[in-house]
């Protein structure tokens, strides 16, 4: 069994990113349970915030980012879950002469720990803390914005997640607050300007605060979940994209998104998630609209009867 798990893990780590976050928050696994997932996502923008100014750029046209990302979640104990994800990303523009990029980005591994749980017949309340760590797995060009597939920096995120349901989860709320410490990234030049001169091949990527709030409903005997949310990322420090220049990893990248998700369970153990993301406010990021499609399958490695 262990061998099978390792293989599954290895396969799946060939796919994680922000879409994984929502899924990770949603999933809870008992000891011995495993969830495998595959996420396919596309986001597009034709305007971006240069500092706080929303502009278009005819030399980019419409910018597209596609992600395919396998993920695994494992119930280590009833209270501790492990997650891993590795996205493969492609970027390209509809206009201009600059090439896009593609490849595996950062492996993301995390643990989620159930700190507090209160479950009554109709109401429940759960508090988790989670931590996840990301590490670039390929030598992609981080200083190639907006086409870079990632920022090339290690990150460590600490979050607290709160889930509450009422009326047998016909209404539920989920929210989280967190802090992502972002490390430095190595770039392929020895000088850069970021409100001053830096004679270095290392860029400091701003750390950030993140929060989200979601409201949802589980209907038809919990076979359909509907959810809407608001996400925010606010960088601590960082410079702005300068007028008519490309961005760089030192930039302060802030955004606020609206999200919507429908999750259906054709089988009790399998689900399909359709998601939508709309970045309606930001700084040094694209005004992106994104769609994602996720398949999940959950099974137990123990001979127990109950699943989910």
């Amino acid at each position: 069994m262990m061998k099978k798990l390792v293989y599954t893990f290895l396969f799946l780590t060939s796919l994680i990113n922000s879409y994984g976050q929502t899924l990770v928050d949603d999933l809870t696994m008992k000891s011995g349970e495993v969830c495998i997932a595959l996420n396919i996502a596309e986001e597009k923008w034709d305007e971006y915030w240069e500092a706080t100014q929303l502009i278009g750029n005819q030399n980019i046209g419409t910018f597209t980012k596609q992600t395919i990302s396998p993920m695994i979640g494992i119930g280590i104990t009833n209270k501790i879950n492990f997650f891993a994800e590795l996205p493969n990303i492609s970027t390209f523009a509809s206009a201009g002469q600059i090439r896009g990029d593609n490849g595996f980005q950062d492996i993301n591994v995390g643990l989620k720990y159930k700190v507090f749980s209160l479950n009554k017949r109709q109401e429940n309340f759960n508090l988790f803390v989670s931590s996840n760590y990301t590490l670039p797995v390929t030598n992609y060009a981080a200083d190639y914005l907006p086409f870079s597939i990632g920022l090339g920096a290690q990150t460590l995120t600490m979050r607290a997640i709160l889930m509450a349901g009422a009326f047998n989860e016909k209404i539920f709320l989920r929210g989280s607050v967190g802090y992502t410490h972002v490390g430095t990234t190595e770039i392929e030049r020895s000088y850069y300007y970021a409100d001053g001169s830096y004679y270095s091949t290392i860029m400091d990527v701003p750390s950030r605060y993140v929060y989200d709030v979601n409201i949802g409903s589980r209907l038809f005997n919990k076979s359909i979940h509907l959810e809407a949310g608001l996400n925010n990322q606010t960088s601590i420090g960082g410079d702005d994209i300068r007028r008519h220049l490309a961005g760089q990893p030192t930039n302060k990248m802030d955004m606020t998104n609206l999200t919507g998700r429908v999750r259906i369970f054709p089988l009790p153990s399998s689900s399909i998630i359709l998601g939508y993301t709309y970045t309606f406010n930001g700084r040094n990021v694209g005004k992106a609209v994104g769609y994602n499609l996720t398949f999940t399958h959950q099974f137990s490695t123990k001979k127990s009867k109950s699943i989910i």
Binding site: Q154, T184, G196, Y198, S200, I202, M203
Partner: peptide
């Protein structure tokens, strides 16, 4: 993690 980082001076 946080203490391993070098400070980049201008």
């Amino acid at each position: 993690f946080t203490s391993c980082e070098e400070q980049i001076e201008p």
